[in-house]
């Protein structure tokens, strides 16, 4: 039984490693961020499986915190890329002139890849 759980966790780990292809290639920021979010889900799965396999109930808490906090990065991303930002980004000594926000990204970034 435990072997099965570990094998399942290992499989999820492999899916993360395969998913890295999307992070490396993009092409857009959105693809990368979404992949990272899916990794978070796989990570929660791995933590829960290992928690049962190794008999460490505390890992449920870890998984909970993971699930909860992965959202923060997603919201931070969405906030900046999906929505218009009003003037005055924080941390300016002098308020900067208002400027149009950058359009949605999907230019070919592969040119930067090797």
């Amino acid at each position: 039984m435990n072997l099965l759980l570990v094998a399942a966790a290992g499989f999820l780990l492999l899916t993360i490693l395969f998913g890295l292809i999307r992070v490396l290639r993009g092409p857009g920021s959105g693809d990368r961020m979404l992949t990272a979010q899916l990794f978070g889900t796989s990570g929660v799965g791995i933590l829960l499986l290992l928690g049962f396999a190794l008999d460490q109930p505390a890992l449920v808490d870890v998984a909970l915190v993971f699930a909860l906090l992965a959202v923060v990065a997603a919201v931070a991303f969405v906030r900046q890329h999906g929505l218009p930002e009003p003037a005055g980004t924080p941390m300016h000594e002098n308020p900067v002139e208002e400027q149009p926000h950058d359009p949605p990204h999907n230019p070919p970034e592969d040119t930067h890849d090797r």
């Binding site: 993360i16 992070v23 993009g26 870890v62 993971f66 970034e109």
Partner: peptide
């Protein structure tokens, strides 16, 4: 060469690290 990709990879690195700490 792309900072956003580096950051996403770093977030992924943190995820894998947490699993390593569990191990």
């Amino acid at each position: 060469t792309d900072l956003f990709r580096a950051v996403v990879l770093f977030i992924t690195f943190g995820l894998l690290l947490a699993i390593a700490w569990v191990r």
